[in-house]
Design a protein around this nucleic acid. Structure first.
Lengths: 339, 339
DNA sequence: AACAGGTTTGCACAGCCGTGCAAATGCGAT
DNA sequence: ATCGCATTTGCACGGCTGTGCAAACCTGTT
């Protein structure tokens, strides 16, 4: 018996065929649903396969079929509560669709993203889902030109040819402002990071615009990374100033948590009596007893479902199917005075 | 020119060769570091490749080489702060090692795990890193028999043949008890979930044993999932009883946060005056101003580094290299009275 | 017994890549 | 011009699978 050099421990269809005393085609057909195999040979094949610990090589299968079963997901901060939840939902739905999930995290410099996208192409992924805002439009177009299907989540720059899923940041930002107004606040602040992600920018702009329409000026803090510490630092600076805000729209729940903690523990402010706060994302911590944060809840499940749908199904003729924007309903907790 | 049917948009080495007017081997060699190609042809190949958007097919390459560049990670709750952080660190280090990462999340029934492991084999992963405690030893052995290298993180059942990385739960649990003793606590409680994960069990047992050696009995709450709500519920029950605890070792920071919140907001307890609390994991939230939780910090970076090392390098002759246990140092914050 | 019709099986090819081996090429030296 | 040597190139094979096509087989009928 000639021993192929491939990989120790992994057996191939040929070996199974030999052991079962059938042709290699029979083995292949046994593992191809709907193919024509007699019950007897099927059984013999399965038996031999079991004895050898045989598993169909999806890599080789990917060479034959037009699909590999691999879908890539590119994130920036997969360990963040919101992206973590999204990632998990995506993995789950991809599994249900019979796909496996390759994950890249591109926290570092821009070169990371390029590398991740190259890998996407190298492994002939069926599609790429982008959670991150960083890949430049150019880079994304390059991928599409190479025949890669792209699904972009939460990028407000709608790229032609790609699939886009977004949340309605504008409506949410306006709702936030009006909630503040109903609570009697007159000095709204906006707390965000220096990341400049499209969706964060959209929230910022819409909030400031809505305030402008009401004749209000917005105090803005825009520094650091998109996380807890930025919110805390924002509170320190804003409350050290002469004109203190009486309301803060934090573009992210993490930022809101930091803001709340600093406002309470370092400035002794009572929320919502002295200060109203609204976040965005509805992360788990927003519901914890120490925060009870009023926020907006993007429909993570729905977004994931649609993203996988777009990644998996052939794009229909209707280009309207390529885009979707989801509504993020407000969830009322205890950081805003009821109107 | 005959058009292969493979995949629209993706070009193969043959097409590049045709366009560049060289043999296919030349293309292959151009993308194989260290192979012999003249500068001129290399340039022509690269040019043609660029024009066609060619990317080496790693799937086909995986057929030839003995390695595919794919490493699988199996988690149970990748959206949890601790596992999320670990996952991210793993992705990062795998990237540095030139590997890509396939992620499975097996929250559901046990059948999920089997499916995930099968996929691991189907895609001929170079190794599998298991964060979850659920895969049964039998299943893991099956994978190893099929020639799969396995790295198990945080499972206290050391499986022969597999690589194991654990944290020193026993030392930590004892340190927790002694910290409580020094703070003058006499009625320690242990709060855990019903998950029965090996590492959680180890913490529980070690804590109870240490208490026993001091002649103390431990109040135990063991219900629900491993999360915030379980901690909150545990506090409600333990403080409703006749004998109230004056210290609580929560086997997870999430549980500790829930416990703290319920103790403070529902029972008006002051921490650490009325109650001392210690967690485990040192998740981000443990450092937030609302918690300032004293806890143990498993060296996530070190664990990830070693896990990737084990997954990537050929196992040496020394079987001692297969196992590693890391120390989780205590990080003092503000939920335990200083001795 | 011969035949028709359906099922099962094997052959051979395609899909994409890496690499050993031998042929071809280039270059400097005699 | 010829030879020797080093470098480069192409051929052909191997690795693993899915599938069209034709041959082989089985079954039931006239």
């Amino acid at each position: 018996m000639k021993q192929p050099k491939a990989r120790a421990g992994f057996s191939s269809a040929r070996q199974v065929a030999e052991l079962a005393g059938v042709s290699r085609s029979a083995v292949s057909r046994t593992f191809t649903p709907g193919a024509s195999v007699s019950e007897e040979t099927r059984e013999r094949v399965l038996d031999a396969a079991d004895r050898l610990g045989y598993h169909v090589n999806h890599l080789a299968r990917g060479l034959m079929r037009t699909t590999t079963g691999i879908v890539c997901v590119i994130a920036t901060d997969s360990d963040t509560p919101y992206q973590g939840r999204m990632l998990r939902a995506l993995i789950q739905h991809l599994r249900d669709a019979g796909k496996v999930c390759m994950v890249f995290n591109t926290a570092g410099p821009a070169v990371d993203v390029g590398e991740a996208l190259r890998n996407t192409l190298n492994y002939r992924a069926d599609a790429t889902i982008v959670l991150s805002g960083t890949p430049s439009p150019t880079l994304i177009r390059t991928c599409m030109d190479s025949g890669q299907r792209m699904v972009l989540i939460n990028r407000d720059d709608r790229l032609g040819g790609a699939h886009n899923i977004g949340v309605d940041n504008e409506t949410a930002a306006e709702a936030a402002l009006h909630a503040f107004l109903r609570a009697g606040c007159r000095h709204p602040a906006l707390v965000t990071s220096a990341a400049g992600t499209p969706s964060l920018l959209a929230r910022e702009r819409a909030f400031i615009a809505a305030a402008g329409r009401e004749g209000l000026e917005v105090l803005v803090w825009r520094e650091g990374r998109t996380g807890y510490e930025t919110g805390a630092e924002g509170a320190r600076r804003l409350f050290a100033a002469r004109q203190r805000p009486d309301a803060a729209f934090c573009v992210t729940d993490l930022i809101a948590c930091g803001f709340l903690d600093a406002a309470r523990h370092e400035f002794g402010l009572a929320v919502p009596r002295d200060l109203c706060v609204i976040g965005f994302d509805d992360i788990e911590q927003a519901g914890w007893a120490s925060y009870r944060l009023t926020t907006f809840a993007p429909p993570v499940e729905e977004i994931a479902t649609r993203a996988v749908e777009m990644a998996v199904t052939e794009p229909g003729a209707d280009p309207a199917d390529r885009d979707a924007v989801c509504h993020a309903p407000m969830v009322w907790r205890a950081t805003v005075r009821p109107g």
